[in-house]
Design a binder for these strands. Structure first.
Length: 810
RNA sequence: GCGGAGAUGCCGGAGUGGUCAAACGGGACAGGCUUAGGACCUGUUGGCUUAGCGCCUACCUAGGUUCGAAUCCUAGUCUCCGCACCA
């Protein structure tokens, strides 16, 4: 074969590995740069071209940074614990460990064939006790500080995955992983107190160089509202109600408590009990499946029989149980102001409850008035603007001891218990005498037992000899916690472990982490916005509070890659048979060709489509480059080529810096075509061209670099620097001149007007190329001068500035 | 409802005040090579024009700023994405 890209690839991949080209150490002389792609879950089906593309995006960036002279940390690892391995165990009888190890080995093999610039000596496998030991260690640290706690709460249960889920893992009432509708269960579970960090998680977002939509999603998820908690009296007891609209308090005509509220029955009178129970039954039977997107359930409710006393008016208003109030937000009960809240309005209309307007504004038959306006029917607050009234009423309530300022978040504590096997064991034992006892640090790790029964509930419950243990406190009989941790725990701090992956004395060496971290560029899918990307910020802040690290945000810059779709536009999927395998691509076109092709399709943050036809265009180009190098005549590069080259260097550098790989590929192509047309090209020019191409096509560039007679690795060569003095872009000259023309036209008419001489003669002195342009303006006489200093040879113009022609009028 | 991103030629997709009738791909059309197909190469691909460094119409719509707008401002229309009855 004329172009044997495959053996070229193998040759240089082996050289890179053998010479440990991408293995790095802390260095005091070089500036560090940490590029990280989100580590994958090693699935049994291996990598397809879409995965390969994800890693390539990071690889190109890492290679660019290496060449720029940074000490680049670019590691890879596997998020190896998780449900699919366990499901495979149930389905095919393979132990999750075996499944996982095979999958990992396959991933490593595939990734090595892609020639990715990883430091393989730092590989991480989260299913190893050497790794998850430190998950357990962090858990104990949180437990010590009260940040890991056990609580009975209503939780999301996925009947298909047979486990509880975190709030973040439920989308539209369905399991994020399998799409099964989740059920509510009341269980005792382990939580991490992420809400302690809610305020900081929100505030720090502003300074992060992250995509705006991701930051917006997190803000939305954290959901901060500042309002007032007002005490309403029910049966002589105070009950706090959260509201952001204290200005509408005079318009409260009823209250609604969530139908899911744990204390609902406290409010239900004997007389109303049958009615309420009937209602609860009814809403339970309504399946969430019937909810169409963008459409809510009709607001429904039932009278509880109790009344609440409005602290300002003293009025008694009925309390309803309702299906539209969220049980675990605020206090689970709301003050209903039908005139000024659409939900309350609909409810009041349905049940014929009084609607009392307290803010002037257009209240219609269909819609409540939720805007700003003047208060009416509000006692001594009447007449105030609602925004002012908000403050005044708040102050009044606080002064009277009837309320307080309250900051409310939507974010909930992170439920980490999972009733599954293939996860990090929670290092806790239950002792009859001592209760909940943490496993002492020196007994870590709590290793997962191997012999368990799959397919019948939580497999760990079948490991009797593992469960039965001694209490570390009293030595008596105790039982181990059988829940494991959510796998998002493993990925919340892995980036730190890469800095010191083999440390068995401590979680990591502080010095090493402070050298490499935080991550400079983090690359991964946007779907993690409210899961991994919040959790790992939380962990970072916690570890900073422990004094282990000296930064509070894990990743300075975040980049979301787009998805590579199959040729038919669908997601690549093995079951549908539309998967493109990197091995095949490598054989058919060469991996560099594929990299170049994918770069040239669209910006890497956009979704793209594989195309067998399209890649041929790139193959043509790569072959042309290859052939060109064997027949090019070496000589002195022309100055115009020099200019073009420097311009390309300048642009391409900026493009890589900003992930604009597409533009880089186009610029490279154009530079190449320019070179092709030249009679002779210097070796230096050829080398500089190759360097520009190296991040995208590392294998063939290594090869051509070698063929030019060079030793060593082009991958480690210094990135070319643009000599800006050699660039004189035509565009700038023309644009500048055009600007001057415009100014001139104005100046002339201004001058004429000033002098009141419509027929005055105008003379202009300008540099020759400018003069040519000015001569198109009517009514002036242009003199070309060769020297900027001689712009005003006769001293007739009063304003002479460099770059500006001299004008005078007669 | 709240929040985010967008709208460019047949399609993908650049361009964010003056090299702009708009880069680069793909597709289509025409031609070359070839017995033919494929591959490869060349040209065309808004309209007018024999041709043009000529004119007209153009970057969602309507206005505006400017000597000059795809690019800036104002209003509107539409599309996509995320959250979801959060009081």
């Amino acid at each position: 074969m004329e172009h044997d890209f495959l053996s070229i690839e193998r040759k240089h991949q082996e050289r890179w590995l053998k010479e440990k080209v991408f293995e790095v150490k802390e260095s005091s002389s070089k500036k560090k740069f940490y590029v990280l792609e989100m580590f994958p879950y090693p699935s049994g089906s291996g990598l397809h071209m879409g995965h390969a593309w994800n890693y390539t995006i990071g690889d190109i960036f890492a290679r660019f940074k290496i060449m720029q002279g940074f000490n680049v940390l670019h590691p890879m690892g596997y998020d190896a614990l998780g449900l699919p391995a366990e499901n495979a165990a149930i389905k095919d009888g393979i132990h999750p460990e075996k499944y996982t190890q095979e999958a990992i080995n396959n991933f490593i093999r595939q990734q090595k064939l892609l020639g990715l610039s990883y430091d393989w000596s730092r590989l991480i496998d989260t299913s190893q006790p050497e790794y998850y030991k430190w998950d357990q260690w962090i858990f104990l640290k949180m437990f010590e500080r009260g940040l890991a706690y056990r609580k009975k709460a209503s939780v999301n249960w996925c009947p298909s995955c047979q486990t509880v889920l975190a709030n973040e893992q439920v989308k539209m009432g369905r399991c994020e992983r399998c799409g099964t509708e989740v059920e509510m269960r009341f269980l005792e579970q382990w939580f991490l107190r992420i809400t302690d960090y809610a305020e900081e998680l929100l505030d720090c977002l502003d300074d992060l160089d992250w995509p705006e939509r991701t930051k917006a999603m997190q803000r939305n998820w954290i959901g901060k509202s500042v309002g007032v908690e007002i005490d309403f009296e029910v049966n002589g007891e105070k009950f706090p109600i959260f509201t952001t609209r204290p200005d509408t308090i005079f318009g409260v005509t009823f209250m609604v408590i969530s139908a899911q509220h744990p204390d609902l029955m406290k409010f239900v009178t004997d007389k109303q009990k049958p009615e309420v129970e009937k209602f609860l039954k009814k809403i339970k039977s309504v399946s969430k499946k019937s909810i169409k997107e963008l459409e809510f359930l009709e607001k429904e409710g039932v009278f509880t029989g109790s009344y609440a006393k409005n602290p300002l008016t003293g009025e008694l208003v009925p309390i309803y149980a309702g299906n539209f109030v969220v049980a675990d937000y605020g206090s689970g009960m709301v003050m209903a102001v039908p005139a000024h809240d659409q939900r309350d309005f609909e409810f009041a209309k349905k049940y014929g409850i009084k609607i009392k307007q307290v803010i002037e504004g257009p209240l219609t038959e269909k819609r409540a008035f939720t805007g700003r306006g003047k208060l009416v029917n509000s006692g001594k607050f009447s007449g105030l603007d609602s925004e002012i009234a908000k403050e005044k009423i708040k102050e009044y309530l606080i002064k009277k001891g009837l309320g307080r300022i309250k900051v409310q978040f939507k974010l909930k504590d992170w439920l980490i218990s999972r009733q599954r096997y293939w996860g990090t064991p929670i290092p806790i034992v239950y002792c009859d005498k001592c209760g909940i006892v943490p496993v002492p640090e020196d007994e870590l790790p709590v290793v997962l037992p191997k012999n368990v029964v799959f397919g019948k509930g939580n497999p760990l419950e079948s490991a009797e000899s593992w469960i039965n243990t001694k209490c570390p406190k009293c030595g008596g009989n105790a039982r181990r916690e059988t829940d494991t941790m959510d796998t998002f725990v493993n990925s919340s701090w892995y980036f730190l472990r890469y800095c010191d992956p083999k440390n068995d004395k401590e979680i990591f060496d502080k010095k090493k982490v402070s050298y490499w971290c935080p991550i400079d560029v983090y690359i991964g899918g946007a779907e993690h916005a409210c899961m991994h990307l919040i959790y790992f910020r939380f962990y970072t802040k916690f570890l900073a509070d422990l004094g282990l690290i000296n930064f509070r945000e894990p990743a300075k810059k975040l980049f979301h890659q787009g998805m590579l779709h199959a040729e038919d536009g669908q997601k690549m999927s093995k079951s549908r048979g539309v998967v493109v395998l990197p091995e095949d691509v490598s054989k058919k076109y060469g991996i560099d060709t594929a990299r170049f092709f994918l770069c040239s399709l669209a910006s890497p943050d956009k979704d793209i489509q594989w195309s067998e036809k399209g890649i041929n265009g790139s193959l043509r180009f790569i072959k042309r480059v290859f052939d060109y190098f064997s027949k090019v005549k070496i000589g002195k590069s022309s100055s115009i080529l020099e200019a073009r080259l420097n311009q390309a260097i300048d642009r391409i550098t900026g493009y890589f810096e900003n992930f604009q790989y597409r533009k880089a590929s186009i610029e490279i192509k154009e530079l190449f075509e320019f070179m092709e047309r030249e009679k002779k090209v210097s070796k230096e020019t050829l080398e500089r061209f190759l360097k520009l191409l190296t991040p995208i096509c590392p294998h063939i560039c290594e090869e051509l670099w070698e063929r030019l007679g060079n030793k060593g690795f082009i991958s480690l060569e210094k990135w070319p620097k643009a000599d800006l003095s050699k660039i004189k872009m035509k565009r700038e000259v023309i644009a500048d001149a055009q600007k001057l023309v415009a100014r001139l036209k104005k100046d002339i008419s201004n001058l004429k007007r000033l002098l009141g001489k419509e027929n005055a003669k105008v003379y202009v002195y300008a540099l020759p190329d400018e003069a040519e342009i000015y001569s198109s303006i009517e009514g002036i006489t242009v003199f070309a001068v060769n020297d900027k200093n001689k712009y005003d040879p006769e001293g007739k113009s009063k304003k002479v500035k460099p770059g500006r022609p001299a004008i005078y009028i007669e």
